[in-house]
Design a protein around this nucleic acid. Structure first.
Lengths: 260, 260
DNA sequence: GCCTAGGTCCCGTTG
DNA sequence: CAACGGGGCCTAGGC
């Protein structure tokens, strides 16, 4: 347990120094911004970071119950010193977080660099690069044309050309594909078709696809290929593509399936 | 600074008691699971919660650099006691997080209930309920038929019937609508049409819509209505719908716009 | 600033 | 269990 007045000073000092602050104590929380929320008095951890991020953690889940990014933080004593009020606020959108402490069990400031060291492998970007090394895995004779091409309507993962000179638009997903992935691919396929004015195919490449999404995909005349990849234990290589199996989805000619 | 051997015992005790644990110290981190990642030695905050959630925070951003939910945690001394290794692991999917401490600055265990107190207003669900009170806001004579109806293909926010006996499918978004919202609505509209075998309209209800998404929406013969709502400062009411403006999108007859 | 999409998305809910 | 979609999504990258 700790005096709220001393706490106030320590918080102000820590915020100024861009330290990481951990505050554990009894508090209530109000948020008003993109939604509104209240949290009745109770014991929680408040985490303040050097970049102005604030998050309030209960003793469950990874995600904080309340949070804000890029805030300005202020701090004042209220009710004759029996409460410490912490405010985090932000413009655009206008958001305010108010934390009222009735007591603080613990307060610490840690000097910590504001860096991002994480080296992650196996992201979609990594798989994309792997695939570009050898598109023939997907289909013999497939040649790269472009990758990460920006349209007005989004970013197309891979554009290739097949043996018969058709353009092939490939949308890659690192996990089970859903509706959104299918409609994305559909959009890009049409975009390429319109730009290039040539017959264009669309292939969704993912480890799996939800059943309904598969149905939609087939209705739209798109193709699915199962992507089997393996994560390399650490830093060495990005990932390894183990295999690529065509589920031989019948390429039903596209016939205005959404007609009403 | 604190002895690693004592730390080990305190962690084990805290995990058993389902306390919230905060550990600040120098550590390296390896994750192997849905992706792989490594974090070189550096000072971080490790947060362990009573439900087995683990997260590792750097001094920036709301989101942890590494995290896992619902883990089993173990703890051992290595290298003749000069390292403390914390392992969090999980099956289905198989995931492993390894945190190697070379030194611990601070370690605390806090007794804290494992509860979720948060009362949030202004979610899509709240707006949905508000709207159902009076669908005539959207359009005179609109009568409710169903809400949150589950199809095999998803959940339809609101189904109503207009003055002319057409079904009206309404998709509600609490923020600016995008492509995904439009295609969602399109899917549900077709689903209802197929089920009921009657002319069906689709209305996307949102505070705003992205330009490209608006184009797609109009191509698909769907309608947009601007939803203006206000958040009530706190607990009292959920939210207040201030107004609802029809952008008079010409209901172009649907004509196979995605045809190639 | 806006738009677009990825994420080890997380998370709750329903069938 | 799988599927589906919301989220105060967060966050990064382009334009």
């Amino acid at each position: 347990m700790q005096g709220l007045s001393a706490a106030k000073q320590e918080i102000e000092k820590g915020v100024l120094a861009k330290s990481m602050l951990t505050i554990v104590g009894d508090c209530s929380v109000d948020y008003l911004g993109r939604a509104t929320s209240t949290l009745a008095m109770g014991k929680r951890l408040v985490l303040i970071k050097g970049d102005g991020s604030v998050s309030i953690h209960q003793n469950r889940l990874v995600r904080p119950t309340n949070y804000m990014v890029g805030t300005k933080i202020s701090c004042e004593l209220c009710n004759g010193g029996s409460n410490l009020v912490l405010r985090a606020s932000k413009q655009r959108p206008k958001e305010d977080l108010t934390i009222i402490f009735s007591g603080i069990d613990d307060l610490k400031a840690y000097e910590m660099e504001i860096v991002n060291d994480l080296r992650l492998s196996g992201s979609e970007r990594d798989l994309n690069e792997m695939l570009m090394q050898d598109l023939s895995m997907i289909e013999p004779g497939l040649k790269p044309v472009n990758q990460q091409q920006h349209f007005q309507k989004g970013v197309c993962d891979i554009i290739a050309e097949d043996r018969e000179g058709n353009f092939v638009v490939i949308e890659l997903k690192r996990r089970q594909a859903d509706y959104a992935g299918v409609t994305q691919l559909h959009r890009y396929m049409h975009e390429v078709q319109k730009m290039k004015g040539r017959k264009t195919r669309g292939i969704l490449l993912a480890p799996d696809i939800r059943k309904n999404a598969k149905n939609l995909l087939e209705q739209l005349g798109l193709e699915f290929a199962k992507l089997d990849f393996e994560l390399t234990p650490s830093g060495e290589e990005k990932a390894k593509i183990k295999g690529l199996e065509r589920k031989q989805s019948k390429i039903t000619e596209h016939m205005h399936p959404q007609q009403g």
